Amino acid sequence: MATTRIEAGFYFLYFSFFPMLLSASGLYPQAKNVIWKSTNFKTVLVWEPKPSANYSYTVELSPVGGNAQKIPNCIQSSQTMCDLSTVMTDPKACYVADVLSQPPQGVIPELSEFPHKTSPKFCPYDDTEIDRPKFTLEVSKGKATLNVRDSPTAIFNGQHLQTLRDIFSEQLHYKVTYWKNRSTGKKTSDSQTSMIEVTGLDQGESYCFQVQVYIPSRTYGKQFGDLSHAQCSEVENQSILDVYSPAVIISAIILILLLTGIIITVTVVCCKRKKKADDKKDVV
Rank of each mutant, 00 (worst) to 15 (best):
A230Y: 01
C271Y: 02
L255D: 01
C208G: 12
S245Y: 01
Q223Y: 00
Y220M: 11
L227I: 05
N237S: 15
I253G: 01
C270N: 12
K274R: 15
E234W: 10
E234I: 10
S245L: 14
K272H: 12
S251I: 03
V211K: 07
D242N: 11
H229Q: 11
T260H: 09
G204H: 08
C208A: 13
Y207M: 00
D226C: 09
E205I: 03
F209E: 00
S217N: 02
S245P: 06
C270A: 14
N237A: 07
H229L: 09
H229P: 00
K272A: 07
D202P: 02
G204N: 03
D242A: 08
T265K: 10
R218G: 01
G221C: 08
P246C: 15
T267N: 08
L201R: 08
C270S: 12
Q231T: 03
G221I: 09
E205L: 04
V266G: 10
I256M: 12
L257C: 11
I249C: 06
E236L: 10
I254F: 13
I262Q: 10
A230K: 10
C208N: 06
V235I: 09
V269R: 15
K274P: 00
L259E: 05
D242P: 01
L255I: 06
Q203S: 00
L257N: 05
A252G: 08
E205M: 05
C270Y: 12
H229E: 04
V248S: 13
F224N: 01
R273C: 09
I262F: 07
A252L: 13
I262G: 09
S233P: 05
A247E: 10
Q203N: 10
N237W: 12
I263C: 12
Y207W: 11
G204P: 04
S217K: 09
D226M: 12
D202M: 11
L259M: 05
K274I: 01
A247P: 00
I249T: 00
I253W: 09
V248M: 14
I256S: 15
Q203G: 02
L241V: 09
A252N: 11
E236I: 03
I264A: 15
L255C: 08
V268I: 15
D202S: 13
R273D: 01
F209P: 04
L257S: 02
A247Y: 00
V235F: 04
I253F: 10
I264K: 09
T260D: 00
I249V: 03
A230M: 08
I250W: 07
K222R: 14
I250L: 11
Y214H: 12
Y207R: 06
Q212N: 06
P246A: 15
Q231S: 12
T265Y: 14
L257M: 08
G225Q: 01
G204V: 02
Q203W: 05
V235W: 03
